[in-house]
């Protein structure tokens, strides 16, 4: 069963991984988006439900596996890495150590997002955007002419197989835009047919479904 899906974007060979991470072999870069670390803590702080406080650990363990399997020299987190700035500041010792171990010996870039607009107080580079080759990496797609890789929307798409709908987080891509699914454990999705995504993507856009097996389909709209 395919657990990775290769494609060309802006002239670059990229690999969408079943985990929702993007691997750019030529640059040695692993890109993930919308980790939402500290989500359960934020929810509890605001007087909401006390969700199982394990999602930060789980997200980081999965990220570690992606880093080890690809041998990434540089990791880019495309924003909303933390559910809010307090969650970043109040990160417990254990996940903080885990992040430090992941960062050791490789470049790391935190792109800012709407949930974490300021630097997260961790080592690594902090930037609003990052230019890599012909591509701009940013949190929210801007609609600019230059090719962009972004996150933010948590896209998901459904495919109907014999009357059964299978819905999964997905990568969306057209000639200029590539949108990553949310990587964090406690994240929901936005249907690709939602006007916000349908407006953004060109008519010939495609969706690459994360999970197993990986398949590419015309973007449902």
């Amino acid at each position: 069963m395919r657990n990775a899906h290769d494609f060309t974007f802006a002239g670059q060979r990229l690999t969408a991984r079943a985990t929702g991470a993007l691997w750019w072999d030529a640059e040695g870069v692993l890109i993930v988006s919308d980790l939402h670390l500290g989500k359960s803590e934020r929810r509890a702080r605001r007087g909401g439900s006390l969700l199982p406080p394990y999602e930060t650990e789980d997200t980081l363990i999965r990220l570690q596996a992606d880093i080890l399997e690809t041998g990434a020299a540089h990791v880019v987190c495309l924003g909303d890495s933390f559910d809010d700035l307090e969650a970043a500041a109040g990160l417990a010792a254990r996940p903080r150590d885990r992040i430090a171990r992941l960062m050791a010996g490789r470049d790391w870039t935190w792109i800012t997002g709407n949930h974490d607009p300021a630097p997260p107080g961790l080592p690594g580079r902090v930037a609003d955007t990052l230019a890599l080759g012909p591509v701009t990496l940013c949190h929210v797609a801007t609609g600019a002419d230059r090719p962009e890789i972004s996150g933010h929307y948590h896209p998901k798409a459904a495919i109907h197989v014999r009357g059964r709908a299978i819905s999964r987080p997905c990568f969306l891509r057209d000639a200029r835009r590539l949108i990553l699914p949310a990587y964090g454990t406690y994240t929901g999705g936005l249907r690709s047919r939602d006007p916000a995504l349908a407006r953004l993507m060109a008519p010939d856009a495609r969706a690459i479904l994360a999970g197993l097996p990986m398949v590419e389909i015309p973007m449902p709209r």
């Binding site: 199982p52 929901g188 936005l190 006007p195 916000a196």
Partner: peptide
């Protein structure tokens, strides 16, 4: 409100609890 991601599924909580607690 429309245009926002849906809440994540309770299946995720179930799997997470099984793994960690």
């Amino acid at each position: 409100s429309t245009g926002r991601q849906a809440a994540f599924s309770s299946d995720i909580l179930y799997d997470t609890l099984h793994r960690y607690d």
